[in-house]
Amino acid sequence: MRVVIFVLVAVCIVAVAVGKRFCSSQNDCLKGECCRNNQLRGKRSVYGVCEPLGNAGSNCYLSLFQVSEGVYSSCPCVRGLECKGSGLVEVPYGEMGTCVRPSCKSAADCGPDECCVNPNRPRGKKKRSTGYVCQSMKNIGDGCLVSYGSGVPSSVGFMCPCKAGLTCTPSGYSDMPLGPMGTCTSGLVEKLSPR
């Protein structure tokens, strides 16, 4: 019994030192977090620790294993990412993977305000056509390519253009072979008149 109490106290001290919050369900955690408890051996605890959802490159499991109501063995990926399996299986959790952007073939496969891009930088005239992913359309202040215009493109490019209603204002710089670069603006240019 003393050992169990000692272990519980040690876990509490470590959790407080690391800044983790205990939880008994998803409702105890903040937005962007999940209630996680990966103790699947021996007696199961109904409590978990609030941990952040998986970002791009984070480890994940293809299937979520629910330890108890609202408590999971691992956190899922953030919205807009999916868990891509590696082929390795960890018993009892299942196939391990990495959080990545979902693949696409055209803008129709992506969400609203997203387009389908080929993240492989073009080199010369040769186009690489593998690994298309969905990315967010550019907002005010984001870098853009003037030739891409604005709104959802009909074809796959290297980066998304500015959102509809925004303009890619040239910056005076150019990228080879992509062409003139700029910044997404509202398109409204204030004219300064001398007073």
Results as ranks from 00 to 15, higher is better:
Met1Thr: 08
Met1Asn: 08
Val3Lys: 12
Val3Leu: 14
Val3Glu: 08
Ile5Met: 13
Phe6Ala: 14
Val7Asp: 11
Leu8Gln: 08
Leu8Cys: 03
Val11Asn: 04
Cys12Gln: 06
Ala17His: 15
Ala17Met: 14
Val18Tyr: 05
Lys20Ile: 13
Arg21Asn: 15
Phe22Gln: 06
Ser25Met: 04
Cys29Arg: 03
Glu33Val: 01
Cys35Gly: 03
Leu40Ser: 14
Arg41Trp: 13
Gly42Thr: 08
Ser45Arg: 06
Val49Asp: 00
Glu51Lys: 11
Glu51Tyr: 02
Pro52Cys: 07
Asn55Leu: 02
Ala56Thr: 05
Cys60Thr: 00
Tyr61Ser: 10
Tyr61Trp: 07
Gln66Ile: 09
Ser68Leu: 10
Glu69Lys: 14
Cys77His: 03
Val78Asn: 00
Gly80Lys: 03
Glu82Lys: 12
Leu88Trp: 11
Val91Tyr: 13
Gly94Ser: 05
Glu95Lys: 03
Gly97Thr: 02
Gly97Asp: 03
Val100Leu: 06
Val100Phe: 02
Pro102Asn: 10
Pro102Met: 06
Ser103Gly: 13
Ala107Phe: 06
Ala108Tyr: 07
Ala108Ile: 14
Gly111Glu: 01
Asp113Ile: 01
Glu114Lys: 01
Arg121Tyr: 15
Arg121Glu: 15
Pro122Gly: 08
Pro122Asp: 09
Pro122Asn: 07
Lys125Glu: 13
Lys127Ser: 10
Arg128Val: 09
Arg128Met: 12
Gly131Asn: 11
Val133Pro: 03
Gln135Val: 09
Gln135Gly: 02
Ile140Asp: 09
Asp142Ala: 05
Cys144Asp: 12
Cys144Trp: 07
Cys144Ser: 06
Cys144Gln: 06
Ser147Met: 13
Ser147Pro: 04
Gly149Gln: 10
Pro153Ser: 09
Pro153His: 07
Ser154Gly: 15
Ser154Ile: 15
Ser155Asp: 13
Val156Ser: 05
Gly157Cys: 09
Phe158Val: 09
Phe158Thr: 12
Phe158Gly: 11
Cys160Gln: 01
Gly165Leu: 09
Leu166His: 07
Cys168Asp: 10
Ser171Lys: 06
Met176Cys: 04
Leu178Tyr: 10
Leu178Ala: 09
Met181Gln: 10
Gly182Val: 01
Thr183Ile: 15
Thr183Gln: 09
Thr185Ser: 07
Gly187Tyr: 02
Glu190Trp: 04
Lys191Gly: 12
Lys191Met: 12
Pro194His: 06
Pro194Lys: 04
